[in-house]
């Protein structure tokens, strides 16, 4: 890989992480403001006031919105002119290491068994990099916090249980309760394989949350009828949005994955000049 391109890609990753950590995407902030305006519970109104105040403070002070700066999940759109080599992955990891120092990020990456921390948010399989073909070289970073990730679930449902999918999603959010920092965004992956459903659920979290189709809206309304509210203290909004992604699956399978995201639904995007 051209060393200058390596440098530009690493820099784009660093900048995408910084943007994601400090400023929420406009559609997420709009969803939070709408939920604030609708909220009738006084404790919940206080929680929303803190959340909106926090967004302003993070932007003004140029500091991360949340101290759990997450695990960086990277989606890379790669044009035909850029070969997918090991260096491409190295450049992404270099960008993550730089962001860890410069933003700064909390070093969250550890060996799963020894729990030893690498100190720079990289390691075996970290960051995960998902490569998709496209026309431009573009990096999208989804920093994923553990509080919400830990509340995610996958179920291998039976093909006869299609109508039970909404209830499964509601069950996952109810079981999570206060723990994933509601109001949450719910990514749902339906179909594919065991691993594919989980990947779809995470990709669903990359989508804008200011619109939902009828299916997504129905599930979202059911979740909000529970009244868990911001931080689980009760209130009208428990989910800001439900986003569903589907993939073809085996005729004998129905994998369904639910990936929960906290209200701090971070995304950062940068395009790399070739």
């Amino acid at each position: 890989m051209d060393p200058l391109l390596f440098e530009r890609l690493a820099q784009a990753v660093e900048e995408a992480v910084r943007e994601a950590e400090i400023v929420l995407p406009p559609d997420v902030e709009t969803a939070l403001r709408r939920a604030t305006d609708r909220e009738t519970n006084p404790v919940a109104r206080g929680e929303f006031a803190n959340i909106l105040d926090n967004l302003l403070k993070a932007r003004d002070l140029r500091v991360p919105i949340c101290q759990d700066t997450g695990i960086p999940v990277v989606y890379l759109t790669v044009p035909p002119t850029v070969p997918v080599t090991a260096e491409l992955y190295d450049a992404v990891a270099a960008g993550i290491r730089r962001a860890t120092r410069s933003v700064p990020l909390r070093p969250n990456g550890v060996d799963p068994i020894s729990r030893e921390n690498s100190g720079d948010n990289t390691g075996a399989g970290l960051p995960p990099v998902h490569v998709v073909p496209g026309n431009v070289l573009r990096v999208m970073v989804l920093p994923k916090g553990a509080g919400s990730e830990n509340m995610s679930q996958i179920r291998m449902m039976m093909p006869s249980q299609v109508s039970d999918i909404p209830r499964f999603v509601v069950d996952v959010v109810m079981t999570a309760g206060a723990r994933p920092c509601p109001p949450v965004v719910v990514g749902v992956g339906i179909g594919g394989t065991f691993d594919g459903a989980a990947a779809l659920a995470k990709e669903a979290l990359l989508e804008r949350i200011d619109s939902m189709d009828a299916y997504e809206q129905e599930i979202c309304d059911a979740i909000n009828a529970l009244g868990i509210g911001p931080m689980g203290l009760g209130g009208d909004t428990t989910a800001l949005a439900v986003k569903v992604k589907r993939g073809f699956c085996h005729t004998a399978s129905l994998p369904v994955a639910v990936n929960i995201q906290c209200w701090c639904c971070r995304r950062g995007v940068r395009e790399v000049v070739l």
Binding site: L55, K57, Q67, G145
Partner: peptide, 27 residues
Amino acid sequence: VFTGGCAALAASCMELVDCHYPELGMA
């Protein structure tokens, strides 16, 4: 309860005084 995720709001009303048991690491 302090609102989860409101790290910048928290930091804006804080002043660091001291660190005890630093050997446990930053977090």
